[in-house]
Design a protein around this nucleic acid. Structure first.
Lengths: 189, 189
DNA sequence: CATAAAAGTTGTCCTATGTCAACGTTTTAT
DNA sequence: ATAAAACGTTGACATAGGACAACTTTTATG
């Protein structure tokens, strides 16, 4: 049950089995079906999820009612609506499983308790933030001046998992192009 | 000399004057002219800058040789080429002052020393990352499905300083639109 | 397994925005 | 103070990609 998480942590820092166990004890297992909403728009984010298996998507609705995908987290990654989680304002996005998933869930209180009391966990949080920040930047900057073809090449290079596991419609909205355009571009390589 | 920085820190956490003084002792004052390059493309980022006065810009060159502005930091903010600073790979961007500036500079070693030894400073770093992450996300998500007019309205709402202090050319590249389009859009409000 | 619903593909058409160029204005350097 | 360079604005034109629709294929559900 905690294998994936334990490996994740052991991979990042030296840690005693007992500390590891203590960390894990704050996480509880959740089984979610495909398409379950974990967090609604305007709800305050109170949980952090670690994905044992499956995939979580972050998305919003545009004014025209179209879903815009923001982020996809796969097995072995953490995901939540971070802005809301941090400052406890209503989230301006949804969290949803896009396939049958197995999640480890920790409450915000528990999470910050671990951050404050276990240095290794604090370090992990810092790394999550650093990586998230770098990723977000790459996504902005990687896209500056890109046309549709460039964007698709980019996604193939840096997030090939997306094209394999996620519907075209979602990938298209993630890239900020229309499904038709994505379809056309893919047929040109 | 350290006033702006001291206020920045005091604003974030309770701190003893002595600790504050110790933190400050790691920063040295730099005077930079307009347009000075603080970090070159492919150089490894070894310093973090705190802006006492003036403005720093992060940018890259596209394949066509056009400058793409990534980020602007004003008085009272920290700035560096973070991805390179974190993992010590060659930066894929430039750091530059865009006006006569007064900067407080801390070495990477000093910075991480403070992060590791002074909890208040560690907290500040976490906050920098959290804020940076949230900002980057807002910028991505805020722009999804935006046309030129929406983008300009967005910048007016969330970063009005940019339009006041920064050239149209730079703002345009920051928004991912051409200077002509920015000019046209502005004339429509 | 059958039917319905959703997603993907492809065509036609249209619009927002990029490119390029000309011109005027502001800024910078000497 | 003056020349030179960079920037901003505006027009004419070209084009990537969005919208919509018809059709096909895949996926979900009873």
């Amino acid at each position: 049950m905690y294998e994936v998480l334990e490996n994740f942590i052991k991979n990042k820092s030296e840690i005693k089995p007992k500390t590891l166990q203590e960390i894990c004890s704050f996480f509880s297992l959740i089984h979610a079906e495909r398409g379950e909403i974990l967090l609604n728009y305007d709800e305050v984010s109170k949980h952090y999820y670690f994905i044992n298996k499956g995939c979580i998507r972050l998305f919003t609705n545009s004014k025209e009612g179209i879903e815009n995908s923001r982020y996809f987290a796969f097995e072995g990654n953490f995901a939540t609506a971070l802005p809301s989680f941090i400052d406890q304002q209503p989230a301006k996005e949804y969290l949803q499983t896009i396939e049958k998933s197995e999640l480890l869930c920790i409450s915000r209180t528990g999470f910050y308790h671990l951050v404050d009391t276990i240095p290794q966990f604090s370090k992990i949080y810092t790394e999550i933030l650093e990586l998230g920040f770098i990723m977000a930047q790459k996504r902005i900057y990687g896209f500056q001046g890109f046309d549709a073809l460039d964007k698709v090449r980019w996604i193939i290079k840096y997030q090939p998992k997306l094209l394999l596991n996620v519907s075209n419609k979602m990938v298209a909205s993630y890239l900020g192009i229309s499904p038709s355009t994505l379809s056309r571009v893919k047929s040109k390589l």
